[in-house]
Write a protein that binds this DNA or RNA. Structure first.
Lengths: 228, 228
DNA sequence: CATAAAATTGAACGATGGTTCAGTTTCTGA
DNA sequence: TCAGAAACTGAACCATCGTTCAATTTTATG
């Protein structure tokens, strides 16, 4: 979680020097990663060029390769990081003692936060087949693990009688689809904030499997305090 | 609907000759369009190369440009065609006299058919920003019109008391997201057929807004006759 | 301050992808 | 049968993109 840089090529190749320099280098790497994530989100992975990423990170194209072996490594770290966060959120929800419906709601909120949030949001993990073959395996596994976590939540809800019997695998995919597709239409300057969208979607998506849904209440547009 | 070729550059530029030749040329154009749609779906629009499309359509790369002005025109026609079909299905559903829930179900079925079906399915229309700026407008308008049609269906259901009050715009986007995301996980050789997936998703997605959902029934995996 | 390592640069390379075009083959209609 | 149009070909062009590298500047440390 804290250090994901020693997984692969570090700057240079000689033994590291002072602690202070190592810190600085690491921070720089993180900055670059953030810049790459922004460009990936803004332009899409395919259209995101190394020159564009370099400019966003305020360094020359060539210098990028001093910190990362190439575009694939950049992409890999971006995807890996986001999936880790989502998996963590899913695990936290699972381990809690609140009703399963609320656990699912928490996962939905976190999911949208990590994809749409202006600062922390990233979407690179949604374009897995842009990643080089050799790096794909691990990412795919994490993505599948996440999907399975959502499915397990649904299954648990059914077992407890909180949810109606259903095809958990299909419902999980439907939920994830509805969530992931938000990156296509969400605009930061739009009418609804990320958390408002999250509440609305959570209400609708959970209601679809709730054993005893409230007769009336579904996402009625913004019941109080509009933006942010 | 029938002829969408005279919208732009036809083969050659001289006056058309005999009717028989025109027919043949038109058929050829359609074949190429189908081939392009297959390649777009298989490889994604960005990764789909003109050489690959040419090979799929059994002609030389250069010859492609005898029938179409370029990749953008190819993409435009693919997107336009699919959106037209979906709009048509939405209109048919709207005009029918069945319950709104069933109208929505019909739209969902058609939507998945036109995206996932082995022969007729196309996914190019999901990558709108791959299209050149100057052609985008029309496609975006059609897509928005379709989204509005789905939203209108929901609003109608609420007005009639068949659906619970909700944020129709958000729910429409959730539904479309769940549907569109199927192209990411659906595999023709998977366990469920397209229509089985359609039924399962329709049940879940409609239940989320139904005023009085059945207590139990939700997509319980394949109640009879598995594949096809 | 000096020196070596770390960091940075920008031009250039090779591959790829959309597109063009001069030339060739195939087909149509009189 | 035979022009002339239509259909077709494949090599080449040009832009772009990921990447490399020799050379230069900056920084850390004795």
């Amino acid at each position: 979680m804290v250090q994901f840089l020693n997984k692969s090529s570090n700057p240079g190749s000689g033994k590291t020097v002072s602690e202070r320099m190592r810190r600085k280098s690491e921070a720089r790497r993180l900055d670059i990663l953030h810049a790459a994530a922004r460009v990936f989100r803004r332009s899409g992975v395919a259209a995101a060029g190394m020159r564009e990423i370099a400019e966003e990170a305020d360094l020359s194209p060539g210098n990028l390769y001093y910190y990362f072996s190439g575009k694939d490594e950049l992409l890999f770290f971006c995807q890996d990081r986001t999936l880790d966060r989502m998996l963590e959120a899913a695990e936290t929800a699972r381990a809690s003692t609140i009703p399963v419906g609320d656990q699912l709601r928490a996962v939905i909120r976190a999911h949208l936060h990590y994809t749409l949030d202006e600062l922390e949001g990233a979407t690179a993990h949604l374009e897995i087949d842009m990643l080089a073959e050799n790096l794909r395996r691990g990412i795919i596994d994490k993505r599948d693990k996440y999907e399975l976590a959502v499915r397990a939540l649904i299954t648990k809800g059914v077992k407890r009688g909180e949810f109606a019997p259903c095809d958990a695998a299909l419902v999980a995919r439907a939920i994830l689809g509805a969530l992931n597709w938000t990156v296509r239409w969400y605009r930061p300057d739009g009418a609804q904030s990320v958390s408002a969208i999250a509440e609305g979607l959570a209400n609708y998506l959970v209601r679809g499997i709730a054993a005893h849904p409230q007769e009336t209440t579904v996402p009625v547009r913004a019941q109080s305090g509009g933006r942010k």
